[in-house]
Structure formats: C-alpha cells, structure tokens
C-alpha cells in the first residue's frame, strides 16, 4: 500500500459562525440518523465569549495504537475510521484522546468520531467550515511515551 500523504481536516472560521449549529445536526444525521446534534454529533460548536470555538477530531491518529481489537484504522483517504462492528466498546480511545474528540453517545456503547465526510461543511449556511488538506506526517502523533517522560 502506498504511503498516505495527506488527510482532510476541518478548518473553522469563527467570524462567520452564527451558532445555529447546523453542522452538528448534519453530523448527528450521518452518525445516528437524527438531527439532534449535541452528544450525537462528532463536531461541537462551543460558545466562547462573543465568539465560537470548534471542537472536532484533527485526525492525528493517537488513538490508533490504543485499540486492542484493531477497530481503528487510517483509511486510504487518511481519515481515522472506527469500525463499530469490530469495536468492543472499551472506551480506551475515548479516554486517551488528548482533545476529547472521540465521542460516546448514550445510545450505544461504541464511540464515534469525525470521518471528514464534509456534511457539516455543506450544512453550514455561512461557510464557517472548510475541508483542508494537511500532510499526515505533520500531524500524526503516538501515544507511547519515553520512559520517565
């Protein structure tokens, strides 16, 4: 398999966001076939004073080496994907994600995450979200630390 070079991640333009959370609704539609957003969305828009912040997976892949059953893989398009058929719901990835981007909703034991599908980008009426390409080598991280670090 040829080494992957780039992956799409989300870029956020807070100045364009009006907090209507259309992105969250679109995301929960993808993952849970509902437009509830909130806990069922992989992307989160959080109010930050007068502005907004985006909270979502940045595909760094730290979770890959955590999964005991190999349910997490970097796909051909570079995206970290959780196969919920293989997942045994241990929450190791949820607990170890340094930015809390691996999500768990109450409806099922297996977690879920952003798969860079672009639904949120399309759903945003103000163009506050954009898919951008980044080099995997620039973002990738490993969970294992040097002894005594």
């Amino acid at each position: 398999m040829e080494k992957l070079k780039t992956v799409k991640i989300l870029k956020f333009y807070p100045e364009k966001c009006d907090g209507s959370k259309e992105c969250e609704k679109a995301c929960s539609q993808i993952h849970f076939k509902t437009d509830e957003g909130g806990d069922k969305s992989a992307i989160k828009i959080i109010k930050d004073g007068d502005s907004y912040k985006m909270h979502v997976c940045d595909q760094r892949g730290l979770c890959l080496d955590m999964c005991p059953v190999g349910a997490l893989k970097r796909r051909k398009n570079g995206v970290i994907f959780l196969d919920k058929e293989t997942c045994i719901g241990c929450q190791a990835c949820v607990g170890f994600c340094p930015i809390g981007a691996m999500r768990k909703s109450k409806t099922r034991i297996e977690p879920f995450k952003c798969i860079s599908c672009g639904a949120c980008v399309r759903a945003c009426p103000n163009g506050a979200l954009e898919d951008i390409d980044v080099k995997i080598d620039d973002i990738k991280e490993v969970v294992y630390h040097k002894q005594g670090a």
């Binding site: 955590m66 005991p68 059953v69 045994i88 190791a92 607990g95 170890f96 490993v142």
Partner: peptide, 11 residues
C-alpha cells in the same frame, strides 16, 4: 506502542 492489556480495555 502496543495496547498491552491482558484483557480488552485495560489501559
């Protein structure tokens, strides 16, 4: 680097 739990989910 490996998830060295002797049962799944032991971090």
């Amino acid at each position: 680097i490996i998830p060295d739990g002797c049962w799944h989910g032991c971090t």
